[in-house]
């Protein structure tokens, strides 16, 4: 019998490296891998997958268990960010929820103030997410873009309808755009192509493929992420941007994470279930190719950190 050859793919592409932070702020580089996740025998992973912890610019409407884990910190974005750093966040992800027209409809001024206070509170790289209403996103993100100039904040989201203004301000103020398209490999790629045409280099783009939580469309996201990564590795620069998944937000929306009463016994203990729900969503998307996961519960952060440590050290 001839000795068995381990099949090693010769990939033509690799994930574009994107730097967040810098200019006096701690920085982190994401991407750079030249094979599928976890395949030690085939390629290299110059940067480990990053963990972002989500904070909000107002008290969140989260389930009690989750709120409990943060205590009073949720009342103040700066304090919350500091606590996130203590819990081991690589990146702080600030959601400007109050800017939503049907929440507080707060505007550019509040956004700037909040971002300034978070930048002041921690020296971690920062992701700033708008309320996901295109016009409002434009309003608050363009304002934010001016204050963190040069610190490579990741600004999200831009979509195929509002990408031009955000792309221009990322270019002018040295930030990174988060390109979000609805769970489709083609739509994500198209958005990258539009950003590219608008002059933004791929090294200033993160792709948010739209996350579905475990049991709520996770399989779609899983396959979109996997297809994006395969396409990138086959040499397509327009799908080579690192992938960010807003796992915590999606996972904690579901009744499996929220309900503690009137639930079947077979669901098991509430807190363990909620944390595992978030962690499995996260682990599985990392297995597909996610480079940044945004989490909510400190225990999930701990679990994913342990997992990352293990696979990177091959233990």
């Amino acid at each position: 019998m001839t000795p068995l050859q381990i099949p090693v793919e010769k990939w033509a592409g690799k994930v574009t490296e994107v730097k967040l932070g810098g200019n006096g702020r701690k920085d982190i580089t994401i991407g750079g891998e030249n094979t599928l996740p976890f395949l030690h025998f085939e390629g290299t992973f110059p940067h480990q997958p990053a963990l972002a912890i989500e904070i909000q610019d107002m008290e969140p409407d989260w389930p009690a268990d989750l709120l409990l884990s943060w205590g009073d910190a949720v009342k103040d974005p700066g304090q919350w960010a500091r606590k996130a750093a203590e819990y081991g966040a690589d990146i702080v992800a600030l959601r400007l929820r109050s800017a939503h027209p049907e929440v507080e409809n707060s505007g550019a001024e509040k956004a700037k103030r909040t971002v300034a206070s978070v930048l002041e509170a921690v020296d971690l790289p920062l992701i700033v997410l708008g309320p996901e209403v295109a016009e409002k996103d434009n309003e608050v993100l363009l304002a934010v873009s001016e204050i963190g100039r040069g610190q490579r904040l990741a600004l999200g989201n831009c979509t195929d309808k509002n990408y031009r203004a955000i792309a221009a301000s990322c270019l002018a103020n040295e930030h990174v755009a988060i390109a979000k398209a609805p769970t489709d490999v083609n739509l994500s790629k198209q958005l990258n192509m539009l950003l590219h045409e608008a002059g933004l280099p791929m090294s200033s783009v993160l792709t948010d493929p739209t996350t579905g939580a475990l049991g709520y469309g996770l399989e779609y996201t899983y396959s979109v992420v996997e297809r994006l990564r395969l396409s990138c590795l086959s040499g397509d620069e327009m799908t080579s941007t690192p992938i960010i998944c807003t796992v915590g937000e999606e996972s904690w929306k579901q009744k499996e994470s929220r309900s503690s009463q009137d639930i079947p016994e077979s669901w098991g203990a509430q807190e363990r279930r909620a944390i595992i729900w978030e962690s499995i969503t996260s682990a599985i998307l990392a297995t597909a190719g996610a480079d940044i996961v945004v989490l909510r519960h400190p225990r999930s952060v701990e679990l994913i950190k342990e997992m990352n440590g293990k696979w990177l050290s091959m233990t």
Binding site: L214, G215, L218, E219, Y220, Y222, S223, E256, E265, S266, W267, G268, A269, Q270, R272, R273, I276, W277, I280, I284
Partner: peptide
Amino acid sequence: FYPGIVYPLLTLRLNIYTDP
């Protein structure tokens, strides 16, 4: 064997093995 863990795993298995 903890239901709070097994339930998410069974859900995941269902998701991944759904015919896309």
